[in-house]
Design a protein around this nucleic acid. Structure first.
Lengths: 176, 176
DNA sequence: TGTTCCATGTAATAAGTTACATGATTTC
DNA sequence: GAAATCATGTAACTTATTACATGGAACA
């Protein structure tokens, strides 16, 4: 169950409300790392509060509560960050389809893999632009920050998908 | 819900029992694409049978049933393979940690990213060997088959993780 | 004859999704 | 004053995991 650690990690960055956290899941984590909706987030925040891993650091209008990580929470987060992977099995629809490619006939496979390459290229373009934006808004002499690292991973990942797909197409061409 | 399509895809390759399918999940899909245990697989096979997407093609000893995909099942599988991605949100602990890196202090970040690079190298080595084995057992003049494609993706993926981690280390070095 | 592997199932619990529900504040 | 956004919650349902349970066949 990585949800609590995702929440701890986001809150460690800066104190936030459940609503803020819901948006950050949607915007940054949901696409590549982890998904959670508000109906899961609010109850989990209460549990984290009960376990003393987070605390209420402020209350705003409309009954909003801003949570921050406690020392205990930060320790638990650190422990998890360094723990071995494999806690929760990955789930990746793209890779699943890749593993099931052999269920299609050769013509279908060619079409699908071609589509995979094209879709990946679109993502690469989007992330390349996002990275350019980050760089543009980074003052010279400053470190670009961690968002840059994540974006770089994303760009390289989609590049990999695209290049792999084209390699498969070439391999299929070879022998047939 | 991709479980049924994963099952259809595996059965499309060759008819199998629930037990066989459980093993193939563990061996091939569980690590990178999708996870499922036998307690989920058996009931889903019954549902697929009820929906006419698979059929029993043979019964062996110990009450084992071998399932095969029906024409309808194959059509449903094909439809899903070509449907747009995004049905189920991905889940990836490595990427989640990558997104939460900023919650660590600089020293911890360096250590963790270094460990990530090393762990990825181990995976690259394993997959490189697996690929060599596949190639060795492929008769000259033959297409190596789809397992080769999946292995290639895995190798490139771990290479990406390793290279990304080293790039991050270099970036962290730069500015401090 | 004991251990491992084959083979299938159910029950209890946990996690995740979708739908339902409410109300305050801001913006146009 | 209508619409969008902020803000939080619960209920119903589906999916997934862990634990429980059983027994046949192969092997040593």
């Amino acid at each position: 169950m990585s949800l609590r650690h995702a929440l701890l990690g986001l809150l460690a960055d800066s104190p936030q409300t459940g609503y803020d956290l819901t948006k950050r899941f949607e915007e940054t984590l949901s696409g590549h790392a982890w998904n959670a909706s508000h109906s899961q987030i609010y109850p989990e925040l209460k549990r984290l509060l009960g376990d003393g891993l987070i605390e209420i650091v402020g209350e705003g209008s409309r009954g909003s509560k801003t949570y921050g990580v406690t020392a205990e929470g930060r320790a638990e987060l650190r422990r998890w960050m360094f723990s071995p992977l494999g806690d929760t099995p990955p789930r990746n629809e793209f890779v699943l389809r890749l593993f099931l490619l052999s269920s299609l006939d050769l013509a279908d496979t060619r079409v699908l893999v071609g589509q995979m390459a094209q879709a990946s290229d679109v993502e690469v373009a989007g992330l390349t632009e996002a990275i350019a934006t980050i760089e543009r808004f980074t003052p010279p002499g400053t470190r670009p920050g961690y968002a840059r690292f994540a974006a770089e991973f994303g760009r390289r990942y989609y590049e990999l998908q695209s290049e792999w797909a084209r390699w498969v197409l070439a391999e299929l061409e070879k022998a047939s």
